Amino acid sequence: MAQIIKPDENTKEEAVHHEPYARTIPSNKLDALAPLHWLALALNDFRKAPVLSLSYGALFTLMAFGIFGAVYLHGSHLVILPTLVIFVLAGPFLATGLYDISWELEKGHSPSLGHALHAMGRNSVSSWGFAVLLAVIMIFWTRVAALLHALYPATQGAHLEEYLPFLALGSLFGTVFAMAVFGISAFSLPLVIERKVDMMTAIFSSVHAVHSNPVPMILWAGIILMGVLVGFATAGIGLMITMPVIAYATWHGYIATIHTKHKRHYE
């Protein structure tokens, strides 16, 4: 007969809670003009922490200078790809520092460079994984664009009809890639920082939130695109302002969209 062993009454078994992997965190329904409110909150954050904001923005500007300088020195646009890969890999980590600044202001604290730098390593595994995923997608996107370039007319002065296959397929694939990148990255990094979730949970939750709010997300994508274009159109100088503002607005958008653990109240 099997022996029944009773647990020691003096021994307490500690319950361990494991978060499910690759789950989808619910999201809220947003007003169509919600991104404009996020932008207003972001500008207020920039006003409250101008030195820190400009310091982080200067790092984005330096990376833009690196891209421009590499193109000038090599005399070829082909060098843009490897430099952009570096930009994509470094960008998420710089953004996490900016999210922390906005988060500290949200809690009523005074943000500091040391605290922001510490936040950059808070969930480094997921952050690195996400950055590498974006870099791989960008490289694949560039390879597809190179293949589509074969459809470009070989003769100069070709009629418009000869450009249509290249323009149509290029626009189609470009739109698909842009939508995919925006969907997976809209709220992933703030979620990785605040909830310390795995990368796939962050991606699934971000895609779900974007899919559930198409109109405000289209507006938000347009705001991001405009900020990046203004930044590069000013030879990278404008990135000192546009990138911190976009990062702060992203944090406020995350707080308004994703069901967080500490809604407007943090430890």
Rank of each mutant, 00 (worst) to 15 (best):
L78M: 04
A32F: 04
S206E: 08
L73M: 11
L78R: 03
F166D: 09
T257R: 02
V176A: 14
T24I: 14
L89M: 12
H262M: 08
T234H: 11
I246G: 02
H109D: 14
K196N: 07
G129F: 00
S76Y: 03
R143T: 07
G91P: 02
V136M: 13
I193D: 10
F204A: 10
V207N: 08
G238D: 06
T175P: 10
P214Q: 00
Y72K: 10
Q156F: 07
P26R: 12
V51C: 01
D198L: 06
A186P: 10
A49W: 07
F166S: 07
F177M: 12
T11N: 09
P153Q: 08
W103H: 11
L172N: 05
A221P: 01
H109V: 08
S127R: 01
L41N: 05
G183C: 03
T234W: 06
P20N: 06
L113Y: 10
D31N: 13
T242R: 09
A64H: 14
I246H: 00
I137E: 04
P190G: 04
F204I: 03
A256P: 02
G222H: 03
M63K: 11
I86W: 14
I137D: 02
T234A: 08
H149D: 15
E194Y: 04
N44D: 13
F68V: 01
G69E: 06
H37S: 08
P7A: 10
P82H: 11
A145P: 00
L117Y: 04
R264K: 14
V230C: 10
G236T: 11
L81H: 05
L167F: 12
S188D: 08
E104V: 00
H149T: 07
G108I: 02
W251L: 14
A186K: 09
T257K: 05
A178F: 15
M243A: 06
E162Y: 00
S205C: 02
Y254T: 11
T96Y: 04
M1W: 04
Q156V: 12
F140E: 12
H37Q: 12
V125R: 13
I86M: 10
I25W: 00
V79G: 06
V125Y: 00
V230W: 14
A178I: 11
I218Y: 02
Y266Q: 11
S55C: 11
A146H: 03
P26G: 09
A180Y: 14
A145D: 13
L169H: 06
K263L: 15
H159S: 15
L98N: 03
R195L: 08
E106G: 09
F187W: 08
V207H: 00
I86H: 02
D45R: 05
A64R: 09
S212D: 15
G183W: 05
E13P: 01
P214M: 03
V144G: 08
A168G: 06
T142I: 04
V230F: 14
V207S: 13
S206H: 07
G174T: 08
